[in-house]
Design a protein around this nucleic acid. Sequence first.
DNA 1: AATTTATCTATCCACATGGATAGATATCGA
DNA 2: TCGATATCTATCCATGTGGATAGATAAATT
Lengths: 189, 189
Amino acid sequence: MSRSRNIEPEAAVQAAQKLFWKHGFYDLGTRQIEQETGLTRFTLQKSYGGKKALFLRTLDLYLDIAETRFLPEVGTDNLEALASWFEQRADPEKMPEISCYGCLMINTIIEFHGQDTDINQRKDRFFKLLREIFHAHLSIVIKSDDEVQAKSEILMGIILALNVVIRAADNNAAGQKLANSTARMIREW
Amino acid sequence: MSRSRNIEPEAAVQAAQKLFWKHGFYDLGTRQIEQETGLTRFTLQKSYGGKKALFLRTLDLYLDIAETRFLPEVGTDNLEALASWFEQRADPEKMPEISCYGCLMINTIIEFHGQDTDINQRKDRFFKLLREIFHAHLSIVIKSDDEVQAKSEILMGIILALNVVIRAADNNAAGQKLANSTARMIREW
DNA sequence: AATTTATCTATCCACATGGATAGATATCGA
DNA sequence: TCGATATCTATCCATGTGGATAGATAAATT
């Protein structure tokens, strides 16, 4: 019925995500998106609603995957599960290449300055996600809720830090020391 | 001999620093600098060498102050000194207002993507500073160098995380839980 | 084969940006 | 008071941006 696109709709979102992840929002032009993904500026407007809307879709995709496939699953032996998750998390052999640009959501939070409600919604979802997952793990193993909260907050902080360290170094190996130190700390809990 | 400026040279740098801290580099225009500080775009070019050069001066100022007045001083009773430093660090009563925008250097590292040598130089200075200060403290109290390195890395990570959490919330009180948890952890070392 | 539809290609546009320039204006020393 | 100098005010400019539009093109339906 109609001409086929240069790039499939979902593939375009994934490709754009990588670009935003690397370059941020403001420093990535629609012409560069066009050139590097094949998605034309025409289709960007007509089918995705423009640059900002496409960006939000890449953020939502990012959070979906974080929620379903990335964060450690709650199960048995939660301290050891957490410890080894941190080790894996920073092992360059097991990280996707794109990780060297840190965390798309953290980068975005810093690039925008809290004035954008679309971004703020995603930000809230992100932090809720992080805080809940660690709380869920630790509350199984630790009785004092005070202590669970304290340790959850530290682990959440270290997740943030890992991403900053890796992006700053532009190198997936840069988080190993922090991750291994964290694993060691968790095993002492 | 010559007409006096709207704003004194060093005051202009400080005022610009606050603006960059809040808005970042790309999202702060020279017209806005002009309007909010009194520094004219003419003088920005003639005396400061343009927007980028002024920005680098604000970064250098930031690092100078971090080095001399902000980070915890090495002395006696270093674990307690570190613990209470973290508490103070996140106490909204004792933080400057501008802190709710996080750390100028971290924001900058994320906004630029490692391709700018001017920024990279400051980035290296920044991380060197952080790693050295914690190592200096902990190596007095802890014998195993392995352990010193591990714990230094964690504290450095938490500094980064504190700034991200505070900027994300746009609220100086947002780091208290993490800071207090960290103080508690340090006192258990 | 003709028609319809969505996409591609190629412009065009309004706007914002960092920076440059030229004339007016302070401020100071002589 | 006058001259020199640096700054201010007010434009101007080249460039890049996201987005819009119009004609050409490809794919599917009839």
